[in-house]
Design a protein around this nucleic acid. Sequence first.
DNA 1: AATGCATCTTGATCTGGATCAAGATCATCC
DNA 2: GGATGATCTTGATCCAGATCAAGATGCATT
Lengths: 258, 258
Amino acid sequence: MKDNNVIELSAIRTTCQSCGLYQLCLPMGLDQGDMDKLDKVIKRQRKIERGDHLYRMRESFTTVYALRSGSVKTYSTIENGQEQVTGFHLPGELLGLNAVSTKFHTDSAIALETSSVCEIPFDRLENLSHEIPSMHHHLLHVMSEEIQHDHCQLMMIAKMPAEARLARFLLSLSYHFSQRGFSSTKFNLSMSRNDIANLLGLAVETVSRLFSHFQDEGLLTVERKSIEIHDMDGLMNVTTKCASHPLPGKSPSSDSLS
Amino acid sequence: MKDNNVIELSAIRTTCQSCGLYQLCLPMGLDQGDMDKLDKVIKRQRKIERGDHLYRMRESFTTVYALRSGSVKTYSTIENGQEQVTGFHLPGELLGLNAVSTKFHTDSAIALETSSVCEIPFDRLENLSHEIPSMHHHLLHVMSEEIQHDHCQLMMIAKMPAEARLARFLLSLSYHFSQRGFSSTKFNLSMSRNDIANLLGLAVETVSRLFSHFQDEGLLTVERKSIEIHDMDGLMNVTTKCASHPLPGKSPSSDSLS
DNA sequence: AATGCATCTTGATCTGGATCAAGATCATCC
DNA sequence: GGATGATCTTGATCCAGATCAAGATGCATT
């Protein structure tokens, strides 16, 4: 990291190619010429503050958003006002595509912290992907990933006990941070306990208790939003001790696992 | 059209256009010329028996399947051998697309009864969709629907009590049958209680008890695989009694059963 | 028709995690 | 700084639904 101000200013009119995320993001795998075409369509760097919505459920779908920095929560609200959190999103992710079939959004996206996004009008993106086969493929790719992710989530909620869900959630976060060049062991949670509980199909109290419990076990240190993982393998063990061996007293944490 | 045999034989080499499902299936919204192109790519009417797999988890992804008749269960198996049912599928649905990102299947698809499918090599389908913009759009459409469906499923398992889940499942089945020209009140379940329980994140015993309970309440009659719904509104009340969610109401948007 | 096996039902118990309750900690605003 | 309200933690209870157990029913196979 060099000097923040200089980088941010120049980035505004910069190309996808110069964006640190381009390997994770929409232009993944595009050649120079195609990337230029994409660059012409993208509206770069809209800044959004914590609590701002990228889009809301039922709004008409016109734009997809590439998250550039910060983090975003997607959720849908049910008739009775309850909300279901469907995911947390980190830089490089594409948001909004799941509205293709309905033409209006079926979920809402809200910034969890100050963030920035690139906006891509969907009709132009579609036109572009008629010219650029790999772009077309990439859109399918992104959606396919989301489906697979949702299936994991489903399995998790349907079959895994609370502690395994939270452990898995933390490991997933850790992985995604490391993928983006951040520490995999020390990071901040931008979402509330409530949001985590909601995503995992648990009560807030349960999440809170589990954090304390993990800390007592020496797996991690948690203080408010800040997490430091001390025993990655131990956490992994927690995720796999679903319905496997029925061992009443839990084994003395740090040991085994390859 | 004179005699049944003749019709069936001719159907084998018939076009998408003559297929009763074409409005639900891949060629949805294509014009004559484009449909002809599609027809050239499709391998029609492969017959599969109950218990046959369309594809298995980890197999390489080459083909998408359009279900023509019968019904199919998709599921993935977890490390410890447990299985998670991700959906039941009826004629007109497209299967396998979620493997685009990995290039190998992350779930398995197995016939619940004698069924038939049309096979479409994915690379040819992709090429075709470079020529046919609306085909490209349709693929995105189908995947977007699946994501929306999965989000509903998530919400259901995370937030709704057991009886609401089963009621919603039955109503969804009913809706999808009626959409395909079958009775919405009297139908057969091609899947086992176990599969239903698995999809809904419940124990078999719970599903069994709920069926009995619904019957005692006069909402429906159930005998083994056969269901007759007597009080559709009553069933809907069950789904809204606790946590509520919009049912597959008007547009033929959300496909795939919940 | 008898055998064996899988699926389904029903009842009796047990428990993971929800809910209720009460503080503690933090953030914001005056 | 002090007040107010949100968020988070911890403890005590409760219950929906899992698990355990035992039949009942159906269905292949011989």
